[in-house]
């Protein structure tokens, strides 16, 4: 385990691995999202209560999962960066944060679009939607702190501490929002989940979920590559300036 992480602490070696892996994950993304969308839009039944609008679920639910997976990535990478000073972990946290924020935003937008025909309103203070909204704010804070310092390393360390504190808080916030919602609005809204899901709906949902994950891995690897390259460019610029000064 640790030797695996040590091995890929070397940016050049990681770049080689990423370059080899990205075409495969990109191809898997296309295949899975393509087939998943086909099943989701054409070859799955409409819900007996929600009608055709249930198809929003196939883009909404995976984005919620990926929004949480993204924050977990940021938190785990931050722990690696703080504890073992793993040189790539900072870059992974920096690369994952905006992607996760986009998934959270996608989840909020699709949830709002789904809410209009279902609840008759664009926004309900549903416990799950509210937790995703707060998760989105946590992402914004993390990104803002990352870029708030002139020294990028300083920003990375501060943001790592914040990410861990946020990660400890996520279950507490989730619990309190669930509790708050049941207090303020009894079960009318939160009962919208399907009690048992039809297998013909489960197949496209799973395809989409795995497809989203492949997409996330692809984008994450590409962004980490980009971060490594921009760090190299910064280092080159710095040494050029030193040469020019001498």
């Amino acid at each position: 385990m640790s030797s695996f992480f040590d091995r890929y602490a070397n940016p050049t070696r990681f770049m080689r691995l990423a370059t080899a892996v990205v075409p495969w994950t990109a191809a898997a993304t296309l295949l899975l999202l393509g087939s998943g969308l086909y099943f989701a839009l054409f070859d799955s039944p409409a819900d007996y209560q929600q009608g055709e609008s249930v198809r929003i679920m196939y883009v909404h639910v995976p984005s919620a999962w990926l929004a949480m997976a993204g924050y977990s990535t940021v938190a785990v990478a931050s722990a690696f960066a703080l504890i073992w000073k793993h040189p790539l972990a900072d870059l992974v946290a920096r690369a994952a944060s905006p992607v996760g924020a986009c998934f959270a935003l996608l989840c909020l937008v699709t949830g709002s679009l789904w809410g209009k025909p279902m609840w008759g309103t664009w926004w309900a203070w549903d416990a799950r939607l509210t937790s995703v909204l707060i998760l989105f704010f946590l992402y914004l804070g993390h990104m803002a702190l990352l870029n708030a310092f002139d020294d990028a390393a300083r920003g990375a360390r501060a943001a790592a501490i914040l990410a861990l504190a946020g990660f400890v808080n996520v279950p507490v916030i989730k619990f309190s929002v669930d509790w708050w919602n049941t207090l303020h609005q009894p079960a009318s809204v939160s009962k919208m989940g399907m009690p048992s899901i039809d297998p013909r709906m489960l197949l496209p949902l799973m395809l989409m979920a795995v497809g989203y994950t492949c997409f996330y891995v692809t984008v994450l690897l590409l962004r980490v590559k980009g971060e490594i390259l921009s760090a190299k460019i910064r280092a080159l610029r710095l040494s050029l300036m030193q040469v020019a000064n001498q």
Binding site: L138, G141, A148, L162, N169, V177
Partner: peptide, 18 residues
Amino acid sequence: ARRGGVLLSLLILPLYVP
């Protein structure tokens, strides 16, 4: 940090929710 005061609100207000 730059603009520390505004940043601070973005960081901790979500954590105040519970």
